[in-house]
């Protein structure tokens, strides 16, 4: 099956001689929900900018559903919808006009454009705001407006560059549900985000880019399986006045009703609970100190640590 996105040996050197991409290669399969992660300045937005024709590449090849952006750019662009990181609409235009106009740029006749605009604005909870100027919308509404605009020509590949940045948690979760829905309907999605919980929850495959190179490209499941150690926070039912002594576990004192513990995958957690219970300490709740993907991400991109010494198996 043709890849939704195929990137081969992509290079980008900016005019100031900064080498943003050092020959990255990447394949995103049709129907995938793909996370492209990396620290600020790693090359994510440059990569997505080249794919969406906003940045000129230095060399390399990009195909979207088999259409090379150098030789079949019209067909490639028809397959592509882009939700950028920054708001990039005219704030003085009305919401409905922004969406209908974008449909026009894709050759969609006015009547059909109006129908689709209504469909997506309703889906994203913006229909009531359709006659408002875009600048009057809240930050979350502006993000949803950009999603509606990107979907109005019903692309096969949707690129979302930090779509939930600055969006409150309730709205973020409703956007996740919406994205899952359109992915289930067949749209391939590529997502960049700084909320690693978001990537872990939504994406099946992942690439991590750092200093213009792909340093990890695998399924989310196999990547998370590499996590050897997790840190948990234990909330205790009664206050304690001294750090309990337990065998084989490195407990840390946080405060009189909270402990922290690093647990290796091979250890399991039940023996710890048993030892605590013997000392009359009851754990009322337990949570990860950091998101699992976040722990991996930090390990992978931490320049100060050699890659082979990070906590990966």
């Amino acid at each position: 099956m043709t890849a939704a996105l195929l990137i081969e040996d992509l290079h980008k050197i900016y005019d100031n001689q900064f080498e943003a991409l050092k020959g990255i290669s990447l394949e995103v399969k049709q129907g995938d929900f793909f996370a492209l992660l990396g620290p600020n300045g790693a090359g994510k937005s440059t990569t997505l900018g080249i794919v969406s024709s906003l940045v000129n590449k230095t060399r390399g090849r990009v195909t979207v559903f088999g259409h090379d952006i150098d030789v079949a750019v019209t067909r490639a662009k028809l397959c592509l919808g882009v939700v950028p990181q920054e708001f990039n609409f005219n704030p003085f235009e009305r919401v409905i006009d922004i969406v209908v106009t974008q449909a026009g740029f894709y050759g969609i006749p006015k009547k059909q454009a109006a129908e689709r605009a209504e469909h997506y604005l309703r889906k994203l909870g913006l229909w009531e705001k359709r006659f408002e100027r875009a600048r009057m919308l809240s930050g979350g509404m502006k993000r949803r407006l950009m999603i509606a605009r990107a979907l109005v020509h019903e692309p096969r590949l949707l690129i979302l560059d930090e779509p939930t940045a600055g969006v409150d948690i309730e709205l973020r979760r409703s956007m996740w549900e919406f994205l899952k829905e359109i992915n289930a309907a067949g749209t391939t999605i590529i997502l960049t985000t700084h909320y690693l919980e978001e990537a872990e929850s939504l994406c099946r495959n992942i690439a991590i880019i750092d200093h213009g190179q792909i340093i990890q490209n695998s399924s989310m499941k196999s990547l998370l399986a590499k996590l050897n150690t997790e840190t948990f926070i234990l909330d205790l039912e009664q206050d304690i006045h001294a750090l309990p002594v337990v065998e084989k576990y490195a407990l840390k004192w946080v405060d009189e009703h909270t402990l922290e513990v690093d647990i290796e995958k091979s250890q399991g957690i039940n023996p710890l609970f048993a030892q605590l219970s013997e000392q009359g300490i009851v754990v009322s709740s337990m949570r990860n100190k950091a998101n699992r993907l976040e722990e991996l991400f930090v390990s992978l991109v931490d320049k100060n640590l050699p890659k082979e010494k990070v906590s990966l198996v």
Binding site: T74, T101, G104, G107, I108, E154, A185, G186, T187
Partner: peptide, 29 residues
């Protein structure tokens, strides 16, 4: 979803795309 299937992209559809895009820009202006 996914009505944009460039595989069936005929020259007539391309002309229609160009005209619609052009008129959209002019009307916007």
């Amino acid at each position: 979803m996914n009505s944009s299937t460039p595989e069936d992209f005929s020259s007539a559809r391309y002309r229609q795309l160009l005209w619609t895009a052009f008129t959209t820009i002019v009307v916007k202006e």
